[in-house]
Design a protein around this nucleic acid. Structure first.
Length: 192
DNA sequence: CGCTTTTGACCAGCGC
DNA sequence: GCGCTGGTCAAAAGCG
């Protein structure tokens, strides 16, 4: 199934106050409504785990949204986990979670995604779907699941930064998750 | 034919 | 050390 683009339901402007820079607005996509930024992480991942602020940030979102537990756990698990291969050098693990009210779980964010896994997670009867960006050499992933408290909402978590622009020139403004637009650790950009 | 989805199995981290 | 859980792999099947 081609779940890339094209859903007219999402053809609305999407301007929101984004976490990456509290003082500036970001346009995510002309196609995607993002109602709420649940969680945002920008942290470096080393082979020697330095778990610190991730859980703290996630916990802070717990109080206001009631589903931060999932995001905090997830971000912890993602760190430095690469099929048993320890990362010798630093890599940046960035993640941001959106909460979107939608009947559809597949959000059109301008990138092409390939599903690689599905998992039923604890405390949520709705399965979690795992996607990788189909861009060549792009390792950005996202997880999509329905809010366990309100199935009308979809939680979408993006992990990583794209090493390319959106596939179509139609999408000209995509600062989110593009390496050119993040203030990255130098080693992160040279990895990709 | 090439790409995507499905899905069971496997692996690693964490808590006890 | 063991079990639980989340994340990923990979073969098979489906689809255009």
């Amino acid at each position: 199934m081609e779940h890339y683009f094209g859903n007219p339901n999402f053809r609305h402007s999407a301007m929101l106050n984004m976490a990456p820079s509290p003082s500036s607005d970001f346009i995510i996509s002309d196609y995607l409504i993002l109602e709420d930024v649940v969680d945002y992480h920008h942290e470096e991942c080393w082979s020697q785990s330095t778990e610190t602020e991730s859980s703290e940030k996630a916990n802070s979102s717990d109080a206001s949204h009631g589903f931060g537990d999932a995001t905090s756990t997830t971000n912890k698990n993602i760190k430095c986990k690469n099929k048993g291969i320890q990362q010798k050098k630093a890599e940046v693990t960035q993640s941001i979670t959106f909460r979107t009210r939608s009947q559809l779980e597949i959000m059109d964010d301008g990138y092409k995604w390939r599903k690689y896994g599905k998992k039923t997670v604890k405390n949520n009867s709705n399965p979690r779907n795992y996607y990788k960006c189909s861009g060549e050499g792009c390792s950005v992933k996202k997880r999509v699941e329905r809010d366990r408290n309100d199935s009308n909402y979809v939680l979408t978590t993006y992990v990583g930064v794209h090493n390319h622009h959106t596939p179509s020139s139609y999408y000209t403004q995509m600062p989110l998750l593009h390496s050119d637009d993040w203030n990255l650790h130098p080693s992160a950009t040279q990895n990709s």
